[in-house]
């Protein structure tokens, strides 16, 4: 009988058996996270909080929009180590942030500051908010006004059933002109916001990433074979060789073609070596 009492537990476990892999996966994922943040230097609890706050507010310089705390790149690893050692030495996080800000510029701050390079970015946010608010206010205003107008009109019509008075006509005209205003305002606001967007793109807020990612260039530009043999094999420019970063397979074919035409070119030979 004792044996039978145990059976319901087995039954329950078989029902919930689908949970076990899930739980296992959860545990494993946690171990991965803890692995990625190599803790070589031991910090106290208060210092650990300081470190987390600082590392979460700094952007990894190599990858796009990932904090230094999360990132797995070697540079982020080393910056984390640097922050840890400096916190252990008793330096204030503000000074560490200032130190890194001086070296890497605004790119390293996850929340961009307000200055001449970033003003357009902040202005766009303000403009979008203003635009939304103005739309809401205008629509609300129009609906209330039209309701009032209908109410007064119906009152007037019941009083003088046949003719519409001059004051009503004025009201009607106002109503129509208000609608016109809305129709003119809307595209104006949209257009201005688009203009600011373009301005924002032109400013250097955005280009700070591009200096890092500038090596990825469209391969379609060198599809023409004659153009390729001249520019790539005889006078290899930066653009073409920078393609290597992105599309290695396609470049291998191109380099092989170049070697057939120009077997003595040491530069192309070197490129072939680096590809292997």
């Amino acid at each position: 009988m004792k044996f039978i009492q145990v059976i319901p537990i087995f039954k329950l476990s078989s029902k919930l058996s689908f949970l076990f892999p899930l739980i296992l996966a959860c545990i494993l994922s946690f171990t991965f996270i803890s692995q990625s943040q190599g803790k070589k230097i031991q910090l106290s609890q208060a210092q650990e909080i300081q470190f987390k706050n600082l590392a979460n507010n700094l952007r990894c310089v190599v990858c796009n929009n990932e904090s230094i705390y999360q990132s797995d790149t070697p540079i982020a690893n080393n910056i984390r180590e640097l922050i840890r050692t400096r916190i252990q030495q008793g330096q204030q996080p503000i000074f560490i942030k200032d130190y890194l800000h001086k070296r890497y510029g605004d790119v390293i701050l996850l929340t961009p500051p307000f200055n001449k390079n970033t003003f357009a970015f902040w202005l766009i946010i303000a403009i979008i908010l203003l635009f939304l608010a103005s739309v809401i206010v205008l629509v609300g205003y129009m609906t209330i006004k039209s309701k009032n107008l209908k109410y007064t009109l119906s009152n007037d019509i019941t009083n003088n059933s046949s003719n519409i008075s001059i004051s009503d006509r004025k009201k009607l005209n106002k109503h129509i002109s208000n609608n016109k205003m809305l129709i003119i305002l809307l595209p104006m606001i949209i257009f201005s916001s688009v203009v600011f967007l373009i301005l924002f793109v032109k400013l250097e807020v955005y280009t700070s990433y591009k200096s890092i990612n500038s090596f990825k260039i469209n391969i379609n530009k060198i599809q023409d074979k004659e153009h390729l043999s001249k520019s790539f094999c005889e006078n290899p420019s930066i653009e073409l060789t920078a393609l290597l970063m992105g599309k290695k397979r396609k470049i291998k074919v191109l380099v092989d073609k170049c070697l057939q035409d120009y077997p003595d070119n040491t530069y192309v030979k070197n490129l072939r070596n680096t590809l292997n």
Binding site: I183, L186, I190, V194, I198, K202, S214, F215, E239, A242
Partner: peptide, 30 residues
């Protein structure tokens, strides 16, 4: 007409943006 205008404006701005993107990539030194 209004939505059509809005869509056209967005489209044109996108075109400008993409062209700009291409031009930016040619400069490799900062």
């Amino acid at each position: 007409i209004l939505p059509v205008i809005v869509i056209i404006i967005i489209f044109i701005s996108l075109l400008i943006f993409m062209n700009h993107h291409d031009k930016q990539e040619k400069i490799t030194t900062k």
